[in-house]
Design a protein around this nucleic acid. Structure first.
Ligand SMILES: [Mn+2]
Ligand SMILES: [Mn+2]
Ligand SMILES: [Zn+2]
Ligand SMILES: [Zn+2]
Lengths: 148, 148
DNA sequence: TCTCAATTTAGAATAGTTCTAAATCTTGAC
DNA sequence: GTCAAGATTTAGAACTATTCTAAATTGAGA
């Protein structure tokens, strides 16, 4: 590789990311992050709690919320709010949008976004657009098959 | 106008819309709808309650929720869920998207949407796309001005 | 007028999340 | 290594938004 590596690449491991935000790497934060990466089905805090608890029985709900906050804060996890109801968490930090199945409520990553340029949105005078959040609604493959 | 009016235009008044869904027009439903049309700032149920109460002091929170549900059900009002926190309500049934000010939390109608065709979203096999919800994030005119 | 279903109402219950305060665990200065 | 200071975890209380319950009220049609 390049011997003159000037700058480290944007640190994408938990350790460095947390440190960068002045946060410590703890077993709980590690565990919560692992739970999210293991099954990327956009679980709610409650689901994360149950999964984490299976591996780390002493973990508490409050800690799960704390850990999720820390992970969001340091940029390792995204919050996803689609319907009313519990917030969902996504450890995929690539730019992507979400497909929400209106039938079963499952959430799927779609590796494609609409950039402010793509969509030529004409905003009224004064608005400053930062980013576009796109939520796709419809039927997931399973539900589409059943609907036939 | 056209003397051979074959079909009534899609009923856009409260009365007919409610009736079409087997619901009655009540003073409370009327009041809640009026509150929404009067100030289209996407208020929460709580804000609707306070505004309605000013004109109709005996109205209850439960009724406001009931009325909002009825209005959503009959297609006179849209629910808007952006951040975590209370659901907001919008009486504008035109196809539109929402601009959310990250600074002050205000929500603004943007009379423009991205259709499934416009955005050529390439979905993995099996997904059936019904509609795209676009949420614009940035600064509203007021906050953009202050930020300067 | 009477009856019955729809609606409204107050308050209880629930769900999701945040807060509080005490216990525990680092980390870094000595 | 010891110790103090600060960060983190924890259980449970508190809080917010919403839904549920059951009784009272309303109103349309027989
Ligand atoms: Mn995702
Ligand atoms: Mn709107
Ligand atoms: Zn589905
Ligand atoms: Zn603003």
């Amino acid at each position: 590789m390049n011997a003159v590596a000037s700058k480290p690449p944007p640190e994408n491991n938990l350790n460095e990311r947390l440190a960068h935000s002045g946060l410590r790497l703890t077993p709980q934060r590690q565990q919560v992050h692992e739970v999210l990466r293991e099954k990327m089905d956009h679980p709610t805090a409650d689901m994360v709690f149950m999964r984490a608890k299976a591996k780390m029985p002493e973990i508490s709900m409050a800690t799960v919320y704390n850990c999720l906050d820390a992970l969001v804060q340091c940029g390792m996890v995204r919050q996803v709010t689609l319907d009313r109801g519990a917030t969902r968490y996504c450890p995929n930090m690539q730019d992507h949008s979400h497909f929400y199945c209106d039938e079963c409520g499952s959430v799927h990553d779609i590796l494609q976004t609409i950039s402010p340029e793509d969509a030529d949105i004409k905003l009224p005078r004064g608005f400053r657009l930062k980013n576009i959040e796109t939520n796709l609604h419809g039927l997931c493959p399973d539900c589409a098959a059943k609907a036939k």
